[in-house]
Amino acid sequence: MGSQSDFPIEQQSDAKEKSVAFQNEDTAHFVTFYFAEHFFGLPISEVVEINRSLEITPVPLAQPYVAGIVNLRGQIITAVNLARRIELAMNTESVDEFEYHNVILGRHNEPVSLLAERIGDVVEIPVSQIEPPPSLIEGMKVEYIKHVCKLPGQLLIILDGDSLQRPDTADTGEPDTSTSPAVN
């Protein structure tokens, strides 16, 4: 079913502990990926796993940013086209024709798959270098951006996982029992 993880990110506690330890030293870990020439990151704690392209079933009538639905080991989740979601201005017109990678978000709520063009490394960044986003970034919607970080040679745009996941529609409905994490 082609669902082998490229980078299985452990869900167990040791991953969490590590990041906590780093945070004490004032650094944070980010999963990074590319879309066109832009460099994006998400806090490692928000990313469940990364998958090479899962087969996407298109959903007619859905919002333009919804690329479709994918099967993640028996769980059906919505695939969100990052470029369309943040209304990324692209040089290439064929936003829908890439071989995508699925960045699965949603440790805490309904998981979604964020489609990225290329996966980067996990980077460790001193917290002091993380800045709030400027009020305007050309070519994308700032509401989905939580922070930015100036790295040598490029700007890391740290996305806001929650707002990426939040549906655009007015009626959000209750969270699905089957997809929300178990309350133990």
């Binding site: 079933t57 859905a62 919505t78 409905g173």
Partner: peptide, 23 residues
Amino acid sequence: GSHLKHIDCYAGTTLMGDGRVAL
């Protein structure tokens, strides 16, 4: 999923025998 709930035309999703998703 919550991104698709509002669409009246669909009742849900299902997995087909080949592992692909269908509406």
